[in-house]
């Protein structure tokens, strides 16, 4: 049983290999872009650009991000030799993110629409970027410890 646990632990460490640095940068930029773009999409009256232009920016950013995610995921699989699974990551890290990040990205747009203060959007953008960098560094450290 101890041998099985060892095999499972070393495989889980492999499955928890962090993203390549270039994709961590892409992910951070995408997360940082969401609050201002979402704020622009939902602003009333319009903010800086027409709402349609903000929507087009969001569609382009999401399409570009999805394409780069597909490339990163394929390269990650080639590098690690295992399937990409998010459920092997520690729940203490993924659960707060799954709840907190959507709130952090959507909430400021609502606050901006209510108050007209863009500081909400830029603050959320900065916090989102910081969280993205921190999560990446945590997984780099976690992977080094377990592998």
């Amino acid at each position: 049983m101890a041998e099985l646990e060892h095999v499972q632990a070393s495989t889980a460490a492999l499955s928890a290999t962090p993203w390549p640095r270039w994709f961590a940068v892409v992910l951070t930029l995408y997360i940082a872009a969401i609050p201002p773009v979402l704020g622009g999409m939902t602003a009333s009256p319009q903010w800086l650009l027409p709402r349609l232009a903000w929507t087009a920016i969001m569609v382009m950013a999401t399409t570009g991000y999805s394409a780069l995610f597909a490339v990163a995921a394929a390269r990650w699989r080639e590098k690690t030799g295992v399937a990409l699974r998010l459920d092997v990551l520690p729940k203490r890290a993924t659960l707060p993110l799954a709840i907190g990040l959507p709130a952090l990205l959507v909430g400021p747009a609502v606050a901006f629409r209510g108050t007209g203060q863009p500081v909400w959007l830029f603050a959320a953008s900065g916090i989102g970027a910081a969280v993205s960098v921190a999560v990446h560094l945590v997984f780099v450290r976690l992977h080094r410890q377990t592998s």
Binding site: L4, V7, Q8, S10, T11, A12, L14, S15, T80, G81, V82, A83, R85, V88
Partner: peptide, 19 residues
């Protein structure tokens, strides 16, 4: 089986190296 249960899918060479 333990490795594949954890990894879901793994390349032959990776299984060989891990085991």
């Amino acid at each position: 089986c333990a490795l594949l249960d954890t990894a879901d899918e793994a390349e032959f060479a990776v299984v060989q190296k891990q085991l």
